[in-house]
Design a protein around this nucleic acid. Structure first.
Length: 190
DNA sequence: ACATCGATCTACT
DNA sequence: GTAGATCGATGTA
């Protein structure tokens, strides 16, 4: 599995969000490899009130201001982690939220992490996929091109549905959520 | 110091 | 369709 190069994350963030569809997120854990195909993403841009970094750098969002190709993992709702891939050069805070995966390797580990058996319940949502892969606080800031958590190159998806983003209160009209039409069954919502 | 609420999920109606 | 869980980052005083 070849990690996507850092340059990949220097493209326009919306382009990155679309091109990440089909790619493979891989977590190498002591228990074994857990991986899935990315099938749903959202873009968060500068100047976007829904973007965590919009009001400047804070302790929580500082990874978004760092170099591209790193993971921005944050804790929310008192119980969930969400994972992003940071895009754009250092100093410019944009990112792509990973919202759903098609489970590939380590499905039994996912079942154990999630306390769920149905394949469809394992990775179909941003909080679900981090729990399934065992991704949390310690992964905030790790290098997605060279660490235990990587995004590997794979097929290009061309049949993409774009919709508005989920769970935000501002900029709700922007069509910056993307999912693969050929992986509908793994997507969090249609 | 303190109040608010979130890029969510589950269980229950 | 919606309430409740649960906690720390953030904004206001």
């Amino acid at each position: 599995m070849i990690p996507l190069p850092r340059d990949f994350y220097l493209q326009d963030t919306i382009v990155v969000a679309r091109k990440l569809l089909g790619k493979i997120l891989i977590h190498n854990t002591p228990e074994g490899v857990i991986s899935g195909r990315i099938v749903e993403t959202e873009a968060y841009l500068r100047g976007d009130p829904a973007c965590h970094a919009n009001r400047g750098m804070t302790e929580r969002n500082k990874v978004m201001f760092g170099p591209p190709g790193h993971a921005y993992v944050y804790f929310t709702y008192g119980m969930h982690f969400c994972m992003n891939a940071v895009t754009q050069p250092e100093g410019i805070a944009e990112a792509v939220l990973l919202r759903a995966l098609e489970p590939l390797e380590g499905v039994e580990l996912m079942r154990r992490n999630r306390k769920m058996n149905e394949r469809k319940d394992l990775c179909g949502g941003p909080g679900k996929l981090t729990q399934a892969l065992g991704v949390g606080r310690v992964h905030n800031g790790v290098d997605l091109t060279d660490s235990c958590l990587i995004v590997a190159d794979s097929e290009e998806i061309t049949d993409i549905v774009e919709t508005t983003r989920i769970g935000i209160r501002e900029f709700t009209d922007k069509p910056w959520r993307f999912y693969s039409k050929q992986h509908l069954e793994w997507v969090s919502r249609r």
